[in-house]
């Protein structure tokens, strides 16, 4: 049985079991910009990251793959404080090339230090590669 792999400009060769990792710590200016983008009040800055900004590092990793999500499920143990460093992990659980696209699925995790804060799953398509 051959191992299916794809090549990616950012993360190199990717197969089932590959874990993509990226760490982000938002500046107060970035949080304020996001609040402005989403129409939320930015003065005073929120104590905790807006939920969508907390999960955004996962979408950064997806964007590296030109990933188009069809389904996302997340469970969050707690809110993430504004200045916490976030480490996002996407573990590839399915990789299935089809006509001009690749079906892909992930286990998703957000850690703050050693603490697992958000877990989830996502599935969809890689387009444009």
């Amino acid at each position: 049985m051959s191992l299916i792999t794809i090549k990616n400009a950012v993360h190199g060769e990717i197969a089932v079991g590959t874990v993509l990792v990226w760490t982000k710590q938002y500046t107060d200016h970035e949080v304020a910009e996001y609040c402005e983008l989403s129409g939320a009040p930015a003065d005073p800055l929120p104590e905790h990251l807006p939920y969508l900004l907390a999960v955004a590092p996962l979408t950064k990793l997806g964007g590296d793959l030109n990933y188009l999500s069809r389904q996302m499920d997340w469970t969050a143990a707690r809110s993430i404080r504004r200045n916490e460093a976030i480490t996002a992990e996407l573990e590839v659980t399915r990789l299935e090339p089809t006509d001009g696209m690749t079906k892909i699925a992930f286990n998703a995790r957000i850690r703050c230090g050693d603490e697992l804060v958000i877990t989830g799953h996502s599935k969809g398509l890689i387009v444009g590669e």
């Binding site: 929120p46 969508l52 979408t59 999500s69 996302m72 499920d73 997340w74 969050a76 969809g124």
Partner: peptide, 29 residues
């Protein structure tokens, strides 16, 4: 140009705002 999922979701009231912690969330695009 397609919007990012986070950008589309930012239109949803409460979801992008402060003071709301989503314990569980499931979306179909």
């Amino acid at each position: 140009r397609m919007t990012q999922g986070v950008l589309t979701l930012s239109a949803v009231p409460l979801l992008a705002g402060p003071g709301v912690h989503m314990r569980e969330l499931s979306f179909a695009f």
